[in-house]
Amino acid sequence: MRIVLLGPAGAGKGTQAARLAELLGIPPLSTGDMLRAAVLAGTPVGLKAKEAMDRGDLVSDEMVVEIISDRIGKPDARRGFILDGFPRTVVQAGALDALLAGSGLALDAVIEFKVDEAALLARIMGRAREAEAEGMPTRNDDNAEIFRTRFDAYRRQCVPLSAYYADKGYLRVVDGLLPRDDVTRQLLPFLNC
């Protein structure tokens, strides 16, 4: 199965990707993790991405697509994969479609985690408080100002991306604010599980 998970930071995509990966026996692929791995490995695209990041620039769509292409070509992804954090724009979605079509493949599902902004902010701030209480480091994005900036950017990008996948018949929506097990139960029928 080839699955894309859409939703803002804190919506539970990473948690559900890990659960689905175990259930389906396919790797969860986080764009951020792949980008960091390519940089650490010193791959050609990793070196280009590092140059962009060192300048403070965003990594281009072309570089991200190249990293995705490299990663989904690995043996563990031949049976499928779960993308978390990609695509983020309609341009990236089109590039993913073309990449898959070039191998005679297509997506099986695109699942959007719908969340209420205020409730999600409360969840993220609670996560930060719990980490602090346990003496654990907090995530850089676990503060209200960064969250609002990221949520606004997500909202601007998500509306056209959701429409793109809805038009193709791939989009399914789950309530990302339900308890973890309930979210997982919502996902399973979309994946024939």
Rank of each mutant, 00 (worst) to 15 (best):
Y154W: 10
M125G: 03
D108E: 14
E130F: 13
A153F: 10
E134G: 07
L107G: 06
F113L: 09
A153T: 14
R148I: 07
A109Y: 00
D97H: 12
T149A: 14
L107V: 13
G126P: 09
R129F: 10
I124L: 11
G104V: 06
R129M: 12
E132R: 08
R129I: 04
D142W: 02
G85H: 00
A109L: 05
G135R: 04
Q92R: 06
G94Y: 01
I146N: 12
Y154T: 02
R78Y: 02
R127A: 03
G104M: 07
D141G: 08
A95L: 15
L96Q: 11
I82C: 02
L105F: 00
D141T: 07
Q92H: 04
L83A: 04
E132W: 01
L83I: 13
A128F: 12
I124M: 10
Q92M: 06
A109G: 06
G85Y: 00
A128Y: 08
A106F: 02
S103V: 01
E134P: 01
I82K: 00
Q92Y: 04
E145S: 13
F81I: 09
A153C: 03
G80R: 00
P137L: 08
A101S: 13
R79V: 00
A144L: 05
G102I: 07
A93K: 00
T138M: 06
M136F: 12
A131N: 08
L96E: 07
L105W: 00
L100D: 06
R123P: 03
A95H: 13
G135T: 03
R129N: 13
I124H: 05
N140T: 03
G126W: 15
L107H: 11
G85I: 01
R127P: 02
D84T: 08
E145A: 15
L100T: 15
S103R: 10
E117A: 14
L120E: 01
A118Q: 13
G102K: 07
G135W: 03
L100M: 13
E134A: 15
V115E: 01
Y154P: 04
D97Q: 12
D142R: 02
R88Y: 07
I111W: 00
D108S: 12
R88W: 07
D152F: 02
L83S: 01
R88H: 06
D116E: 15
A153W: 08
E134C: 11
R88D: 04
F86W: 04
G102R: 04
T138S: 13
E112C: 11
A95C: 14
K114N: 14
R78A: 05
T89K: 01
A122R: 10
A101I: 05
E130G: 07
G135Q: 05
D142I: 05
I124Y: 05
D152C: 02
A118N: 11
A106K: 11
E145G: 10
F151M: 08
F151Q: 06
A77R: 03
R127F: 15
R139K: 15
R148W: 12
V110H: 00
T89P: 03
A95G: 11
R78E: 11
I124F: 07
A153D: 13
R139C: 11
D141E: 07
M125C: 06
E112N: 14
Y154F: 13
T149K: 10
D152G: 15
L120V: 00
T149I: 03
D142L: 02
R127H: 10
R78T: 04
N143G: 11
E130S: 14
E130P: 06
T138N: 07
V110I: 08
G126K: 14
G102E: 08
